[in-house]
Computed example of a mutant assay.
Amino acid sequence: MSANISAADVKKLREMTGAGMMDCKKALAEAEGDFDKAIELLRKKGQKVSAKRADREANEGVVVALVSDDKTKGIIVKLSCETDFVAKGEDFSGFAHKAAELALANFPDTLEDLLKIDMGGLPLADRVTELVGKINEKIELAAYEKLEATMISPYIHMGNKAAVLVGLNQASEAAYDAGRDVAMQVAAMKPVALDKDGVDQDTIAKEIEIGKDQARQEGKPEQIVEKIALGKLNKFFKENTLLNQQFVKDNSLSVAGFLQSIDKELTVTDFKHVALG
């Protein structure tokens, strides 16, 4: 080793990278005191850890939703890891919030675009890799959603285990509060679409086939099988599309009916829901 590695140097590298003390010491020794080279070595360690753990399940983590000050733009990011212990750590949750702030500030179109955005001199993707090296678990920025609307109501569910954004066609305090109630509905009832027009044709075809099979198994005559299946499809729309669902806080109303009780023109224009797992 041609360079003397001081405790101060190790401390400095640790502060710069967040890596462990011994990892910093080894990296500086291998890099012969060159900080840039040592940082690169630590990043490579992260990449190796990431590759080594690529087959592990990353079902824990943190989901963060942020909305712009004017409440017209919102984002959700999901940072996944392997264990609940890591998910609850300050390093991990702090990184997730920084990634969310970066997403809101830049408002990229896709997760791939988000991972390319600069975070302190490196792409966000490389910062994730560094975090892998520091924490020694499989970590990935697993989801990103964006939403624009006249007003957006956010909701964080179960200690950052899920997040919802609900876009509304009106901007008022009453609309915002109603949107929060609807966002909680989304988290609880997990609708597949806003209304029946948002359900894809493959899902509709599958539900019709399931309905036909059920009718045949019940011994119904073939000539009414199609009619029964369409009836079951309408039930599917009622149970699985947001505006048609029964409102959880008042089962006498649909979600659409609840919104109209606040203002007859109020409705949801879109929603986003991201959960762990």
Rank of each mutant, 00 (worst) to 15 (best):
I262S: 02
L41C: 07
Q47W: 07
K272E: 05
K45W: 03
E148D: 14
G277Q: 05
L194W: 00
N234I: 12
V182L: 12
I5L: 01
A125N: 11
L259H: 03
I156R: 09
F95C: 12
A187I: 13
I5K: 00
D195T: 15
E112S: 08
D270Q: 07
D177Y: 01
F247Y: 11
V10G: 05
Q223H: 06
T267H: 01
L122P: 05
Q170V: 15
D270T: 14
A229I: 06
T72Q: 11
Q185R: 12
L141P: 03
L230Y: 07
L114Y: 05
D55W: 00
A143T: 13
F35G: 13
D84A: 02
V225K: 03
V132H: 01
F258D: 13
F236P: 09
G94F: 01
M184T: 07
D213V: 12
Q201S: 10
G89L: 10
L253C: 05
K272R: 08
F107V: 10
H273A: 11
D200M: 04
A205W: 00
A100P: 15
E207T: 15
L111D: 12
I117L: 11
A58R: 03
A29F: 00
A87G: 04
E30H: 04
V186T: 05
A171N: 08
F236R: 05
D23V: 02
A54G: 13
A100W: 00
K88S: 09
K73Q: 15
Q170L: 14
E145A: 07
L230V: 08
L168M: 12
G211W: 01
